[in-house]
């Protein structure tokens, strides 16, 4: 059974003056444990697709089932709770809270889920250890390099043992060496934890590392490859 099933998904941005059709009747299925790369030129709708599939953004039309549940049919609170428990997010610009240390950033999703502080901290440290940043746990984002920050983001995205990890240009702000390191880390985790990864990227080198590549053009899937 597909863990993600999107059917005839439309997303239109209405800016008042013009309407931008970002997704135009897109269909997609992702199997559990898959690691797929969503590729395509700027403005083709990659990030929009990720946002719509993860429930961060609303659909204009269509349906998205995650583990068979219509995520867009949920109200905001259950949808948020679902995200907190089942999903992890990695963003291009890291999106760490600048006022928190690495470990505090990582433990935040656990605290949101109601975990006790001590337990959350232990788990967060474990996650940081997993991404090789144990020595940096008490540093704030501003004191770390881009690669390190992205590793913290990865640790944060995995700390709650999510079913699906959404990664939007996870290497977009990194140099080649760091990019490959981060990607290898994601692959390793995918292999180890059998978690599903949806990675939005425009970097073919990154795409190549994924099992499946979806290429988008103007809001629809233009091509699909398997590695």
């Amino acid at each position: 059974m597909a863990i993600i099933k999107a059917t005839n998904v439309y997303k239109t941005y209405d800016t008042g003056k013009i309407q931008v059709k970002a997704l135009r009747g897109l269909d997609l299925e992702v199997q559990k444990g898959d690691m797929i790369a969503v590729m395509g030129p700027s403005g083709c709708g990659k990030t929009t697709l990720l946002n719509c599939l993860s429930g961060l953004d609303d659909l204009t039309d269509g349906k998205v089932l995650i583990e068979g549940q219509d995520i867009h049919a949920m109200k905001d609170n259950p949808r948020t709770e679902y995200r907190a428990k089942k999903m992890g997010f990695i963003f291009q610009s890291f999106n760490l809270l600048p006022v928190l240390t690495a470990v505090e950033n990582v433990e935040l999703p656990l605290l949101v889920s109601g975990m006790k502080t001590k337990e959350a901290k232990q788990k967060a440290e474990k996650a940081l250890d997993l991404v090789g940043l144990m020595d940096w746990k008490d540093h704030k984002p501003s004191e770390m390099s881009g690669g390190q920050q992205q590793r913290v983001t990865i640790a944060r995205s995995l700390v709650n043992d999510p079913t699906i990890v959404w990664a939007d240009e996870p290497t977009g702000n990194l140099d080649t060496k760091n990019s490959l390191e981060v990607m290898d880390l994601l692959l390793e985790l995918n292999k180890k934890n059998k978690q599903t990864f949806v990675v939005v990227t425009h970097d073919p080198a990154i795409g190549k590392k994924c099992k499946r590549i979806i290429e988008m053009r103007s809001g629809v899937i233009a091509k699909e490859f398997s590695n």
Binding site: S54, L56, D76, N77, T80, E81, R83, A84, K85, F89, F91, N95, L97, L108, P109, V112, S113, R156
Partner: peptide, 11 residues
């Protein structure tokens, strides 16, 4: 705020 909402902060 977007990130917090993504990782599970309710409104």
């Amino acid at each position: 705020i977007g990130m917090l909402r993504a990782i599970g902060f309710k409104k």
